[in-house]
């Protein structure tokens, strides 16, 4: 289980991860927020749809790609949280159809 060693009084922001409202420390990486809140599945593999999660946490494995504010392919280990951010597990396989036209 992941644990935070931070001072609990540090400043926090709220964001949403997979529909769940979550409190995170200002400046925290999106990946660390997911890990600490038992939301460690970052994406589904494009062919097999197997669950994947962060492997390197330093930007070289591209396993932690999530969707942030509607933009897929965002590396959760490199992105920092911000107030009101919406994070979801990336689920784009070769079969995925785009939802209805956004405009």
């Amino acid at each position: 289980m992941f644990q935070s060693l931070r001072n609990p009084n540090d400043e926090r922001v709220q964001l949403t991860v997979n529909g769940e409202l979550i409190e995170a420390f200002v400046g925290q990486s999106v990946w660390s927020v997911m890990a600490l809140n038992d939301q460690s599945i970052t994406r589904r593999a494009a062919l097999s749809a197997e669950a994947r999660s962060a492997y390197c946490a330093m930007g070289v494995c591209f396993e932690c790609m999530v969707e942030i504010d509607g933009f897929p392919n965002q590396q959760a280990c490199l992105r920092r949280v911000s107030k009101g951010m919406v994070v979801t597990t990336q689920d784009i396989t070769e079969m995925t159809e785009a939802s209805d036209a956004c405009v």
Partner: peptide, 15 residues
């Protein structure tokens, strides 16, 4: 290395 990164940047550890 990821354990190091999480520790240094986010004070996050895996028990």
């Amino acid at each position: 290395g990821s354990a190091q990164v999480m520790l240094k940047s986010d004070a996050t550890v895996a028990e």
